[in-house]
């Protein structure tokens, strides 16, 4: 499939499939594992993250020429935190049950890697419409993955789908799947399937063009850690180069000074 870069459809496809934040980029793991005890919780978490993501991309893209480069991270954090607070209020008012079920993880959307990552990698460099659809695509991808993980855990752990009992009395729920260890197991199997299916070139691509846009020093996502090491090596190399250049300049200057002194002495002798 060949789509125009930056077109709405391409952004949606990219977010949901090609660079799916959970399965390909492995971002936002805390929320992914913690709230997916049932499909509906995962779905709600995905939707609230999507709302924040769409509006933060919109605002950051609108303000991208106004925000000075030096303070862009704090500025993004303030924008995202404001949006998260709004979402929190909204859920508290209209979906109290979900608000209680998701608990601490609603305010923690602020530190979800996906949001700052997309702000840094996409919204701060691209026009408004593409950025909004980028947020929508990534949000949809996140929602789908969370709902999927929730479905699996709920089915195995309680014999239910979206809260409806689908398996009869003969089924003894493996309740560990709705507890903490189950989350790790389900994600492990999904990651293994991803390892198996995802073509190597896509994986390669995902590692090189990661969501946080090379800001790995501040992200600490799992894929990022490899890049993080690479980045540090790059920085070290640059520092070494700079040092070498400085030393060279200093040496040249000293030589020039020596030559000048010698010339002056010569001049003095001549006098």
């Amino acid at each position: 499939m060949k789509l125009k870069k930056g077109s709405p459809l391409e952004r949606l496809y990219n977010g949901v499939w090609q660079e799916n934040p959970t399965f390909v980029l492995m971002l936002g793991m805390c929320a992914t594992l913690a709230v997916t005890t049932s499909a509906i919780n995962g779905f709600a978490m995905g939707l609230s993250t999507m709302a924040v993501l769409v509006f933060s991309n919109l605002l950051i893209s609108l303000l991208r020429k106004i925000i000075p480069d030096g303070v862009r991270m704090p500025a993004y954090i303030v924008i995202v935190a404001t949006l998260v607070t709004l979402v929190e209020f909204f859920m508290h008012a209209f979906a109290t049950e979900l608000f209680n079920a998701l608990g601490i993880f609603i305010p923690l959307i602020v530190v979800n890697c996906i949001i700052l990552g997309r702000a840094e990698a996409y919204a701060s460099k691209n026009p408004v419409v593409s950025s909004v659809f980028d947020g929508l695509g990534m949000g949809l991808g996140f929602t789908c993955s969370l709902t999927l993980i929730g479905l699996v855990r709920e089915f195995i752990g309680a014999g239910k789908l979206f809260g409806f009992q689908v398996l009869g009395d003969w089924y003894t729920p493996v309740s560990i799947f709705v507890l903490a260890p189950g989350a790790f197991f389900v994600l492990a199997v999904i990651a293994a399937i991803r390892n198996r299916i995802v073509r190597p070139e896509v994986r390669e691509n995902a590692t090189n063009e990661i969501a946080c846009g090379g800001n790995c020093r501040y992200c600490s996502g799992t894929i990022c850690s490899a890049n993080h090491a690479r980045l540090d090596a790059e920085l070290e190399r640059k520092a070494a180069e700079e040092k070498a250049a400085k030393e060279k300049a200093a040496r040249e200057k000293a030589e020039q000074l020596k030559a000048a002194q010698a010339a002056a002495e010569k001049g003095g002798d001549a006098q």
Partner: peptide, 22 residues
């Protein structure tokens, strides 16, 4: 096993540790 190299085995380990901590 090849499929489980990298993240999957780490997650499985984390799951077992979570059981232990339970």
């Amino acid at each position: 096993p090849r499929t489980f190299r990298g993240l999957p085995i780490v997650l499985l380990t984390a799951g077992l540790m979570a059981i232990a901590f339970m």
